[in-house]
C-alpha cells in the first residue's frame, strides 16, 4: 500500500471525484489478508454510498458488475488501469454492507440486489416530514405517486416505494403519519405532531 500515495484522484464524466485508491489495481481484487480485506471493504462501502448519493442511485445489483453500460460503470470499472470489480467480490461487499445496516436486500430473500442506505430510513423519515411541512402538505392525503413524482422535483423524487414505506412507518410510530388504504391503492397523511 506504500505506492497508494503516488496515485491520483480522478474526476468522472458525471463530476464525481474518485479517491486515489480507485487507481490501485489491488483494490479490485479480494485480499487474502483479512485485515487488509476489511479495510478494502470499508473503502468500497464508502465509495459506493458516496457515489450513490452523488447520482441519487438507490439500487445496486450484482448484475451491475457483470454488464457494462449501467449507472455503476464509473466506479465498478477503471479503464485507465484496466480493472473491474468481479461479481463475486461485489456480492461479498454487498453482504458486508447489509450486515452493517448500510443496505438491505430488496426484494428480501435474495442476495443479488440491494437497496442502498446512503440516508438511513430514519433520515428519510425526517426528509419526508420536512418536505411535507415545507410544501404545505401536512394533513393532506398524498398518494405515493405524489411523493415519488412531485410536479416540482424534490429530494424524494424517485425514492423507491419500499424505502418510502419504511420512512412512513417510522413516522407512524411517533403519530406523524397515517396510512390509508382503499381497493385501488394506498395513500398517506402526514401530521405536524410533537416529537
Amino acid at each position: 500500500m506504500t505506492n497508494v500515495m503516488s496515485l491520483s484522484t480522478h474526476t468522472t464524466a458525471s463530476g464525481f471525484l474518485l479517491p486515489s485508491i480507485h487507481s490501485a489495481p489491488p483494490f479490485f481484487t479480494q485480499q487474502p489478508n483479512p485485515g487488509t480485506q476489511a479495510i478494502a471493504i470499508e473503502q468500497w462501502t464508502r465509495l459506493i454510498l458516496t457515489y450513490a448519493r452523488h447520482r441519487r442511485l438507490f439500487v445496486l445489483r450484482v448484475e451491475d458488475a457483470e454488464t457494462t453500460g449501467n449507472d455503476w460503470d464509473e466506479i465498478l470499472r477503471n479503464e485507465r488501469i484496466n480493472r473491474k470489480l468481479l461479481p463475486p467480490y461485489l456480492s461479498h461487499i454487498l453482504s458486508a454492507m447489509v450486515a452493517k445496516d448500510l443496505a438491505v436486500y430488496e426484494p428480501p430473500r435474495q442476495t443479488r440486489s440491494v437497496l442502498l442506505y446512503w440516508r438511513s430510513p430514519d433520515e428519510w423519515a425526517e426528509t419526508l416530514h420536512s418536505w411535507a411541512t415545507a410544501t404545505g402538505q401536512l394533513n393532506t392525503i398524498l398518494t405515493f405517486y405524489d411523493i415519488t413524482d412531485p410536479p416540482i422535483e424534490s429530494e424524494l423524487t424517485g425514492i423507491p416505494i419500499p424505502l418510502l414505506r419504511k420512512a412512513i412507518s417510522i413516522l407512524g410510530k411517533t403519530g406523524r403519519a397515517q396510512m390509508i388504504g382503499v381497493a385501488d391503492g394506498e395513500g398517506v397523511r402526514l401530521f405536524a405532531g410533537g416529537r
Binding site: I141, L142, T143, D146, I180, V182, D184, G185, G187, R189
Partner: peptide, 9 residues
C-alpha cells in the same frame, strides 16, 4: 378521506 384518495389514485 377514502373518496379523496380514490380520486387522487
Amino acid at each position: 378521506d377514502r373518496a379523496i384518495l380514490d380520486l387522487k389514485l
